[in-house]
Design a protein around this nucleic acid. Structure first.
Lengths: 146, 146
DNA sequence: TCCTTGTAGTTGCATATACAACTTTACAAC
DNA sequence: GTTGTAAAGTTGTATATGCAACTACAAGGA
């Protein structure tokens, strides 16, 4: 890309995460208002588990792009909230396999509804093809840097 | 926007801030490697002050889209690092005016160089017009939710 | 002058993150 | 088998965030 882009001062907002902060706060707010007591970070863990249970913490770290230390504490909190449980892998005693509890499983539909609501609120007045381009651009950014 | 967008599973990454996490980590890493001892959050405060000194904490909160409590602590840390100082406003003793120190002012060019480097690394293989659309989309998201 | 209301900033508490150092377990080389 | 190395997870420490409750000050009206 050319340097001309950098002339736009507002471009640095890319770096300060204003949009992400806004969306993350709104997601948390929507969860709260729907009576769901989880953070937006916990949501990303649960989302991975709704897709596939029995993941190791390392696998969750990779999929959610978080440090394994962050996963340790997120799982601590989710376990305290009785939404997931750690099960030591008998085949490899170094690893914990993370499973949803019944309560954790039952949150799925309500959470997805709030996630979709949040996206809809965020993307008012944004054309579909622009959403698609923004999404693809962020994906490329992520791939460039990870 | 239509619901078809939501079919794309990867779209939820929008909500988990993968791209922002990646860019924020890389920015911090680039600062460190350049011998600059600040976080990416502190950077956003300094950036505002390089544009205009003597802002109140509330004004910094508005411009960086952070809670005023976050600003209190960021300024605490920046003051401890001797990059900024609080000056009580004589005209309104409730407010602090935040000024850069000489050291804080001298970081500007080095920091901007690293910020530009980070953006360049993030946006390899992204077309200029896609960058522009992504930027505008994120701006709209921010405006929709704030 | 006193009272009410609003604003700026701080503090307490819970949560989340990064990095380094550590423990435990697995596994391959010898 | 013993040893060396690597991987998974945890813990300590520093930083950052959100929300609620608080203090201090300002400004307008009775």
């Amino acid at each position: 890309m050319s340097n001309s882009i950098f002339q736009a001062k507002e471009f640095y907002d890319f770096l300060t995460g204003k949009a992400y902060t806004a969306i993350s706060r709104r997601l948390h707010k929507n969860f709260r208002e729907a009576g769901i007591d989880i953070t937006s970070e916990q949501w990303s863990i649960l989302y991975s588990l709704w897709e596939e249970e029995g993941l190791t913490q390392q696998e969750l770290a990779t999929r959610t792009f978080r440090e394994k230390t962050a996963i340790t504490r997120l799982i601590n909190n989710l376990e305290r909230s009785q939404l997931v449980i750690r099960v030591v892998d008998k085949a490899d005693r170094r690893t914990n396999l993370i499973y949803l509890t019944k309560a954790g499983r039952s949150l799925k539909e309500k959470c997805l509804a709030q996630a979709n609501k949040t996206l809809a609120e965020a993307l008012i007045h944004v054309k579909d093809d622009h959403v698609r381009i923004a999404k693809d651009t962020l994906k490329t950014v992520y791939e460039n840097l990870s």
